[in-house]
């Protein structure tokens, strides 16, 4: 995927392609008990946080389901499971993507990064995480991993954004606690630390 592809266009594309299932369908897919009728390979390899993982994936399984329920990466949250909130945001080839609205089979050849992959080997927080701690950006924290990943994705293509650019860049991530201003402070600080 072109990293310059805007996130909105990407999401729109996913929805238009019909990959965004209704939430009920996603619940079905989450456990993937059913064998596919066709010849879809189920045991696939995906690259998550720099490691290749073999995982048994049902044809309609979403990336969020695979990450959370197959790989135990529960840092990726599900707020709506239908492409509305951004709680499930991960990076797919550097592009922030709604993991609830991406089929795992469609990203087998891509690099997936989740919130669990950001800390350095010695345990240091990523600058975005560090800045979010210093600014006390999270409130309840449920949207936080998604906000973190959206911010990391934004800073990769725009390391010195204006506050308005951050506002636009994170606009796909809802925070019901209304911590937007504190997240903006966090991203601006991260850009300085970065």
């Amino acid at each position: 995927m072109n990293p310059k592809l805007s996130r909105r266009r990407f999401i729109k594309g996913v929805i238009a392609s019909g990959a965004a299932a209704t939430s009920t369908t996603i619940w079905y897919a989450a456990n993937g008990a059913e064998r596919p009728a066709g010849a879809v390979e189920r045991l696939i390899r995906i690259n998550v946080n720099g490691q290749t993982r073999s995982v048994d994936v049902a044809p309609q399984e979403t990336l969020a389901s695979t990450l959370r329920y197959k790989l135990g990466l529960t840092g990726t949250k599900l707020g709506c499971n239908r492409g509305e909130c951004g709680a499930c945001t991960v990076l797919v080839d550097d592009t922030p993507s709604y993991a609830c609205s991406v089929l795992t089979h469609s990203v087998k050849s891509m690099r997936i990064e989740t919130v669990e992959g950001l800390e350095s080997a010695n345990g240091d927080l990523h600058p975005v995480q560090q800045a979010f701690v210093e600014e006390l950006s999270p409130q309840c924290g449920y949207c936080t991993p998604g906000q973190v990943m959206a911010a990391v994705g934004l800073l990769r293509i725009n390391p010195n954004p204006t506050r308005e650019e951050v506002r636009q860049g994170l606009a796909g991530n809802i925070c019901r606690c209304g911590s937007y201003d504190s997240y903006l402070n966090g991203v601006m600080r991260a850009a300085q630390i970065g």
Partner: peptide
């Protein structure tokens, strides 16, 4: 100001909400 004990867990995704738990033999209700 201070760093509340749970905030690092929130930015790293390590803090657990109820749906993040699982248990051997767990089954699912709808």
């Amino acid at each position: 100001d201070f760093v509340p004990p749970d905030v690092v867990g929130k930015v790293t995704g390590r803090i657990k909400y109820s749906e993040d738990y699982s248990r051997d033999g767990m089954v699912y209700a709808r």
